[in-house]
Design a protein around this nucleic acid. Structure first.
Lengths: 226, 226
DNA sequence: CTAATATATATACATATGTATAATAATGCC
DNA sequence: GGCATTATTATACATATGTATATATATTAG
């Protein structure tokens, strides 16, 4: 797994509508390969340890056929990361908008997050644990997705601050802290039995509350000093 | 790298004082092997990707000689993790005690931490980025070291809270949040140029301040409600 | 049908890995 | 000296990997 794959097609792969072909039809698609790779990763297996042959085997194709779809295992991995990030952001986004009227935004967002963990949507595994190892392209892809999370959370926090008229001190730092904390605790949770999850959720909620109360208090003090 | 090594000798390997030998003398020591492995890891190389042969090559011994010192690459890795954790805890501990009179404990602890990053003491790399991948024994070792950090920080926070008569709400959660956040941001910093480090330190200090102010505010409110 | 073309496979090669087995080398004890 | 003991190496083997090359297969255009 070298660090090539400079220009992976960013098309988000939504089962194209059977374009007219010339030549033999593809018996397998990029998506099939990605699914096969996803199937191999898990709590005890990281994507950066998958070999080309292994993925091809899981997908039921000859090793060389892999090259028809991706240049690299790395390129596949990056595509997978992007897909995972998008999917998760959408889920969290729904949880957030759904929660505005109901319960605490914090609580329900975190619960949605941990629910994804429990559902063994391997997507999350990618974002949680693969960010620190692997090729540069790989790490970069994870980092980019995390930044998207930060940005969305940031605008959301600012919106809420205005709405409820609570101050917010350095919202970018706040959203970054929350994002990193949630992902770090999520990674920890992945290595623990499910019985421990409720406890982790509770801790996580407390942590995020502390940060939010902290930023509000700091904002209040900062306003007082002016 | 399988997940064996159930009972690695926990002796922390402080260059034994030449015990009387019978048989041929060892030309290489556990420490030499660990040093060779450490030399191979770096910002672009994770310990879980090192092969036995590669480490042996770097140490200048035949592949099979490795077995005289460790059962596994995994066992070596775990030993290395423990050593790294101990070393880092000592450094941070010194920074903390040195800082009581001088500047903020938060600021100087974080600076000591990031200084270690910059000094490219590869030790830190191990703790920062290898916690999420690798064998169970491996991940367990990292997790254990992080817990040590949490515990030490926790007692320190409580001591400070008493000393300065500020409340502290759920100190275990606070110390866990701070520890995880520092390590997560440290891992991020490792993949960025050094110019970005001051900025990251500043953000990290703000984050920790928010958490501390948050827990104090929550403690105050909780006391008021009683 | 035939040619062109896109796709998939078969075979093969150089290389890497973990480790089993046997042989060699150095040390202490008698 | 010889002998037991330990450390190290040499050789070898089964297996895995990435990928180059050549070939087979299916599909459409003409």
């Amino acid at each position: 797994m070298t660090s090539t794959s400079k220009d992976a097609p960013q098309t988000m792969a939504t089962t194209e509508p059977a374009r007219p072909h010339v030549g033999r039809r593809a018996v397998i698609s990029r998506e099939d390969l990605m699914a096969a790779a996803l199937q191999l990763v898990g709590p005890h297996r990281s994507i950066s340890t998958l070999s080309l042959r292994e993925i091809a085997r899981a997908a039921g194709i000859a090793p060389n056929s892999f090259y028809r779809h991706f240049r690299d295992v790395d390129e596949l991995a990056v595509t997978l990361i992007n897909q995972a990030g998008e999917a998760l952001r959408q889920i969290i986004g729904e949880a957030r908008t759904r929660a505005v009227a109901e319960r605490s935004v914090v609580q329900s967002s975190i619960e949605a997050f941990m629910e994804q963990l429990r559902a063994d949507q391997k997507y999350l595994h990618l974002l949680l644990r693969e960010g620190t190892v692997g090729s540069d392209a790989f790490k970069g892809a994870v980092e980019r997705q995390l930044c998207f999370f930060e940005e969305e959370l940031c605008t959301d926090l600012q919106r809420l601050a205005v709405q409820r008229d609570t101050g917010i001190y350095q919202p970018e730092v706040v959203s970054r802290a929350i994002t990193r904390l949630v992902f770090a605790m999520g990674a920890k949770a992945m290595d623990q039995p499910e019985e421990a999850h409720p406890d982790i959720i509770e801790q996580l909620v407390t942590m995020v509350r502390m940060i939010i109360i902290g930023t509000q208090t700091m904002a209040a003090k900062s306003a007082r000093d002016h």
